[in-house]
Simulated scan of single mutants.
Amino acid sequence: METIVTLQEFMLHTKNITYVLMVVALIGITGFWLFLTDRDDD
Rank of each mutant, 00 (worst) to 15 (best):
T6H: 05
T18K: 12
F35V: 04
T18M: 15
M11K: 13
F32A: 12
E2V: 05
L34E: 04
T30K: 15
T18F: 11
T6M: 03
V5E: 11
R39I: 02
G28E: 05
M22D: 02
R39D: 09
T3G: 09
G31S: 12
L26Q: 08
L12S: 15
D40I: 05
F35H: 11
I4K: 05
E9T: 02
N16R: 15
D38I: 11
I4C: 07
V5I: 07
W33Q: 12
M1C: 06
L26G: 13
I4L: 15
D40L: 10
F35D: 09
G31R: 15
T30G: 10
F32W: 12
V23G: 01
V24P: 00
F32K: 14
L21E: 03
L34N: 06
D40Y: 01
T3D: 09
T14Y: 06
T37W: 03
W33Y: 05
H13C: 09
M1G: 03
L12V: 08
Q8L: 14
V20R: 01
L21H: 00
T30L: 14
F35G: 06
G28W: 12
D41V: 08
D38N: 09
F10A: 15
I27Q: 01
Y19H: 04
V23D: 02
T18G: 12
E9H: 03
A25C: 14
F35W: 14
V20W: 00
R39F: 02
W33H: 09
T14L: 15
M11R: 13
T37D: 04
V23K: 02
E2Q: 10
T37N: 11
M22Y: 02
R39W: 01
T37L: 10
Q8E: 14
D40K: 10
M11P: 00
D42L: 10
V5W: 08
M11W: 00
Y19P: 00
L12M: 14
T14I: 14
G28L: 15
M22A: 08
F10C: 03
E9C: 05
G28T: 08
I27H: 00
T6C: 04
F32H: 03
M22T: 03
I27C: 07
V24D: 01
V5Q: 15
D38E: 11
T30N: 10
M22V: 06
T37R: 14
V20N: 00
I27L: 15
E2I: 04
M11D: 07
L36G: 01
V23L: 14
F32N: 06
I27N: 00
D40E: 07
T14W: 04
L21F: 03
E2L: 10
V24W: 15
T6L: 07
M1D: 06
V24A: 14
L12C: 08
F32T: 06
D38H: 04
F35Y: 11
M11N: 09
H13T: 12
V24R: 09
V20P: 00
V24G: 07
T37K: 10
I17D: 03
R39A: 04
I29D: 01
I17A: 11
V20I: 09
L34W: 06
T18Y: 00
W33R: 15
W33V: 12
F10S: 08
D38A: 14
G28F: 15
V24Q: 13
L21Y: 02
M11V: 08
T6D: 05
I17S: 03
A25I: 13
M1L: 10
L7W: 00
L26S: 13
